[in-house]
């Protein structure tokens, strides 16, 4: 009896602590959304108030007047999708190359791709910037996407998965007269579709969030991505808090809504592959 009561109390404490922690984790988002609906006088008011006393859309209207958020979305989504497509194709193609095919210099080439993890674009900003300058790719979509078109992490991941595909399958297709291009497209790709989905989600999220490279390579307002536009608000140093929070809400909400629907895929994918290196 006593044991059962103690167990009950333990359960209540456990869920109480977890729930409190969970609320603290999402409290910043709730505060963001609520502040975005407050009139500016109310935001600046020192008096503590979590909920808006009067609700207003003025902050949102001003965000749309001040920055071209629509264009930002377009730029960000275009680049993140393009990079994701390129990473998926190159990672699977190179994964097949490094796991099932044999040629001279293969291992050296694989080591070179892995070594690139230690030299991310953020470390060689200056040389990459001069390269973009020479190619006249400053302020262009090619320039924004270029350093991320292939991913060593993706190649490594896909090599691991394609390795697990039985050689007999590849061999059988070859006896049927299929070329390696054909085998890659009709045998390998359909078999790694689920891991491609994981790599795709991660690549898209990381590139949607990329900040430092666009900061270097974009100077034209029309080429700005979403993170750069948000950066514009931080330079205002909290002078327009309601607008900042409205802009944040517009950026964060779509991702959180998508996440709410595909929550388990996100979590599984991230825990399975670990993290970007």
């Amino acid at each position: 009896m006593k044991y059962r009561v103690r167990r009950k109390i333990g359960q209540v404490v456990l869920h109480g602590v977890l729930l409190l922690g969970g609320i603290l984790m999402i409290a910043p988002f709730v505060w963001m959304v609520l502040s975005s609906f407050k009139p500016s006088l109310e935001v600046i008011n020192v008096e503590f108030g979590f909920f808006p006393k009067t609700w207003t859309f003025a902050n949102y209207l001003r965000v749309f007047q001040e920055v071209s958020l629509g264009r930002g979305y377009f730029n960000s989504i275009l680049i993140a999708s393009g990079v994701t497509l390129s990473v998926l194709l190159s990672a699977t193609a190179a994964g097949y190359l490094f796991s099932k095919l044999r040629f001279r210099g293969r291992d050296q080439l694989f080591v070179l791709t892995l070594a690139s993890v230690m030299i991310p674009p953020h470390i060689v900003l200056v040389p990459l910037y001069t390269l973009m300058n020479r190619l006249q790719w400053i302020n262009t979509y090619q320039g924004l996407a270029f350093p991320f078109l292939m991913s060593a992490f993706g190649i490594f991941l896909m090599r691991q998965f394609i390795r697990g595909i039985p050689n007999d399958l590849v061999e059988a297709a070859r006896i049927d007269g299929a070329s390696d291009f054909r085998i890659y497209w009709s045998v390998i790709l359909p078999l790694v579709r689920s891991s491609m989905a994981v790599l795709g989600i991660l690549t898209f999220l990381w590139n949607y969030d990329e900040f430092l490279w666009p900061l270097v390579v974009v100077h034209d307002n029309r080429m700005m991505t979403i993170p750069l536009i948000l950066g514009h608000f931080t330079q205002a140093e909290a002078k327009f808090p309601g607008e900042s929070m409205a802009a944040c809400t517009l950026v964060v909400a779509p991702v959180l809504i998508v996440y709410a629907f595909f929550q388990s895929q996100f979590v599984k994918g991230m825990s399975m592959t670990g993290l970007k290196a």
Binding site: M25, F211, L256, Y259, V267
Partner: peptide, 13 residues
């Protein structure tokens, strides 16, 4: 889901 929500939001935001 609650603890993971900040992970998917952009660092800039």
């Amino acid at each position: 889901a609650l603890y993971f929500a900040p992970v998917v939001t952009s660092m800039v935001a």
